Computed example of a mutant assay.
Amino acid sequence: MKTPIHLWIVGVVSLVWNSGGAFDYVMSKTQNADYLANLPAEAIEFLNNTPLWFDAAWAIGVWFSVLGSLLLLFRSRLAGSAFALSLVGLIVSSVYTYGLAEQRTFEAGGTAALIFSIAIPIVLILLWIYARAMTRRGVLH
């Protein structure tokens, strides 16, 4: 089956989108001073006080999203599974971010953080649905 052009578009756009999350993760975990200088003090405090299980869930969410995008571009049926695992990581990390943490990141980050807090799960769910649909159609194998 010929690869539809939309697969390449979705794959590249999702890789760029998810690379933004990977960049944020790496800069935050390596405590890059230039990057962190752009964040409010409350956000830095939040990042410095997260439990290990949050960090693990965040890593799973970020890196499985990047992997899912790459697997889309490689036309692998495992893309859907990667996006599903990323979604699990996002859900688990969100339990801390929006339920258990004293400081909410969207409160510290303002409107932009709130928009990303809404957009990230929507985009991830749509990518998971897309990858599953492409697998059912035989585009991913």
Rank of each mutant, 00 (worst) to 15 (best):
K2Y: 03
I5A: 15
I5W: 06
I5H: 05
H6Q: 10
W8H: 15
W8Q: 11
W8I: 11
I9T: 12
V10P: 00
G11M: 04
G11S: 10
V12F: 11
V12W: 06
V13C: 09
V13Y: 00
L15P: 01
L15N: 07
L15T: 08
V16Y: 01
W17C: 04
W17M: 07
W17K: 07
W17N: 06
N18E: 07
S19L: 11
G20F: 08
G21Q: 03
G21T: 08
A22R: 10
A22E: 10
F23Y: 15
D24N: 13
Y25N: 05
Y25Q: 02
S28E: 05
K29G: 00
K29Y: 03
K29F: 02
T30W: 00
N32V: 04
A33Y: 00
D34T: 14
Y35N: 12
Y35A: 14
L36H: 08
A37N: 15
L39G: 02
P40V: 11
E42T: 11
A43W: 08
A43Y: 12
A43I: 08
I44N: 12
E45Q: 13
L47D: 15
T50D: 01
T50F: 02
P51L: 12
P51R: 11
W53P: 04
W53G: 11
A56H: 06
A57W: 04
W58Q: 05
W58A: 12
A59N: 03
A59G: 13
A59S: 14
I60S: 07
G61M: 10
W63V: 04
F64L: 05
F64K: 01
V66S: 07
L67G: 08
G68N: 08
S69G: 13
S69C: 05
L70P: 02
L73Q: 12
F74D: 11
F74E: 10
R75H: 14
R75G: 05
S76L: 09
R77T: 08
A79R: 09
S81P: 00
S81K: 02
S81M: 08
F83E: 01
L85P: 08
L85I: 12
L85A: 13
S86H: 03
S86F: 02
L87F: 15
L87D: 01
V88Q: 06
V88D: 07
G89L: 08
L90E: 03
V92S: 10
S93N: 14
V95S: 13
Y96H: 15
Y96F: 14
T97Y: 00
G99E: 11
L100Q: 15
L100P: 07
L100N: 08
A101W: 04
A101Q: 09
E102D: 15
Q103Y: 09
R104V: 01
T105M: 13
F106Q: 08
E107I: 02
A108N: 02
A113F: 09
L114V: 07
F116E: 09
S117H: 02
I118G: 05
I118C: 03
A119H: 01
A119C: 04
P121D: 04
I122Y: 00
V123H: 03
I125S: 06
L127K: 02
L127Y: 01
W128P: 00
W128T: 06
A131Q: 03
A131F: 02
A131T: 06
A131Y: 04
R132S: 09
R132V: 12
A133G: 02
A133S: 14
A133D: 12
A133E: 10
T135C: 00
T135S: 13
G138T: 13
G138R: 14
L140N: 10
L140T: 13
